[in-house]
Design a binder for these strands. Structure first.
Lengths: 221, 221
DNA sequence: CCAAAAGTGTTATGACTACACCCATGA
DNA sequence: TCATGGGTGTAGTCATAACACTTTTGG
């Protein structure tokens, strides 16, 4: 088993993030095989010879969530010799951001279970996935401060309070409402729609949307 | 030749930087084999089954420069299908920073030549090495602004003007001498030595050294 | 004494922080 | 009319940017 592969093999693992009920969550699958039986792990798979590593990551993401065209970025490559007891596997890790709206999880027979976990309270993880997810969370925080990618965690139309709440959840930090609005509006990333929120028992908020829904470098917070 | 490998193979390429004579330089090797005969490339090699990817990068660096214990950081993994005409090779790229002091290059028979090039005026490069080096330069600029790793490009003792010059060369930007000194000294990264420069036809400068010569996150410039 | 780089302070401007009250709606 | 979150401005502080002359040395 130790020498299953004569050369290192390339896999890809995907840390999938969403924000749901005020919590940053990540999608994990529960394993069946020893020595990681019942341990959880980020979804992953081998890179095939006829697909690029990016394509492999997108395929794995699509297999687990059914989603195409979501934000997907390479994170880091994990290449320690003993990271996988089944053989010599180098993993090119990615992270994905999705807006959780009526997303159905595909539990295949390959795994015991699939579920969302609070990214800050993880269960026992297989392989070096503890390290991978920690790095993904750190990278996500950093990206949120230096780019506009938060758009991929929000619905098309949203209020400034919803936007602020997502920054606060991920960065574990509170912002002053007035200062936050001043800052975020000065960046011209958002356009104000001529619509208001409906159906809640208080003053309805103005809705906004992103001017660009493609990744851009911006000093945000 | 196209199907030399049945699975993707893992290689590592190292972009080695130094600053010499006021220029940011990178070490390239000149290839012998078709279709890249006489093209230049960043040094690289396959990752062996009994070494980690980090170890492979350090080994390749050491084989080309004879140096151990230099600053070496993973950059990005390049995994396009057709990036290497010899077969399916995924490359985990690294970049290294060295202080060029009496460094002897090992030209092996494997290559036509080994030489330093201005990182902003590169010759025809093999594979996707144009892209790899461009990404390495961008990453280096970013790192210089957010960490103390510039220590690895300087000798143990240096003047503030030498330090400023390295920032200016890499960031392609001039700084005001007074503001630069105020800023850099306020970070407490440097200690003033009780020595002065000797042997030049002008007022001798005070020498400084770094307090820490290990990578640290700092907002520098 | 001349050439060359070292060293040094002040002022103006822009960015960030802290902070409290009135508004619009549904129940 | 009450509860709930929406929406708004100002003043103080801090970091950054602009700017020019004197000092020390070797030749």
């Amino acid at each position: 088993m130790q020498k299953k592969y004569q050369f290192p093999v390339i896999a890809s693992d995907i840390v999938i993030f969403t924000v749901d009920k005020g919590i940053l969550k990540t999608l994990l699958i529960q394993m069946k095989k020893q020595p990681f039986e019942s341990f959880w792990a980020a979804p992953g798979g081998l890179v095939k010879v006829n697909e690029s590593v990016d394509q492999a990551a997108a395929r794995i993401l699509s297999e687990k969530t059914g989603l195409e065209k979501v934000y997907l970025e390479q994170l880091y490559t994990f290449g320690e010799i003993d990271r996988d007891p089944f053989g010599r596997v180098v993993s090119v890790a990615y992270f994905a951001l999705i807006s959780k709206e009526g997303l159905s999880l595909k539990t295949t027979s390959e795994y015991k279970d699939v579920s969302w976990f609070d990214a800050k309270k993880l269960p026992k993880l297989a392989y070096d996935h503890q390290e991978i997810i920690a790095k993904a969370v750190a990278c996500l925080k950093n990206k949120l401060e230096h780019s506009n990618i938060i758009y991929s965690l929000l619905p098309k139309e949203f209020t400034l309070s919803e936007l602020q709440k997502i920054y606060e959840i991920i960065l574990s930090k509170k912002f002053d409402k007035r200062n936050f609005r001043k800052k975020i509006l000065s960046l011209h990333m958002l356009k104000k729609l001529s619509k208001k929120q409906t159906g809640q028992a208080n003053r309805p908020a103005m809705l906004y949307s992103f001017v660009h829904t493609s990744p851009q470098q911006v000093k945000v917070i």
